[in-house]
Amino acid sequence: MFIKQLSVFLENKKGRLASLASVMARNGIDLYALSIADTTNFGILRALTNDTDKAARILREEGFMVNTTEVIAAEVDDRPGGLAKVLDVLDAGGIGVEYLYSFVRNPSDSALILFRVSDTEAAFKALTEAGVRLIGLDELSKK
């Protein structure tokens, strides 16, 4: 139950993010979740969308450097300790977290944490065995 995530290389130049957003808008790409890692010279935008392959294709045509990566989306209780529980499982399994970001679609829902980990297969196994619910892209779109 991996989710294909979009990663885009962005130079730290005025207007790049706006132009990316407008390409997405023009092509009817729905953004579910978004995060940006920023450094002095560049940023990496990571996003979940309703159609990752289409988004990647369109952005490439527009000259963006795009990659897709598999990430894991874990559902956690939206209360103190929700994240800690999941991280403990990964830690116990010796699985490193490269990065993570979270989002909540509706205030009533539980929170979702998106992980990129050192070993996706192992993380999947450990989290499933620990009873953590992992969400697929189809489920996200229904929310």
Binding site: Q5, F9, A37, T39, I44, M65, N67, T69, E98, R116
Partner: peptide, 15 residues
Amino acid sequence: EVSQKLFGDTVKHIE
């Protein structure tokens, strides 16, 4: 110019 070959999606990789 960053290419598909050079671009990994973590800051660590790029740095």
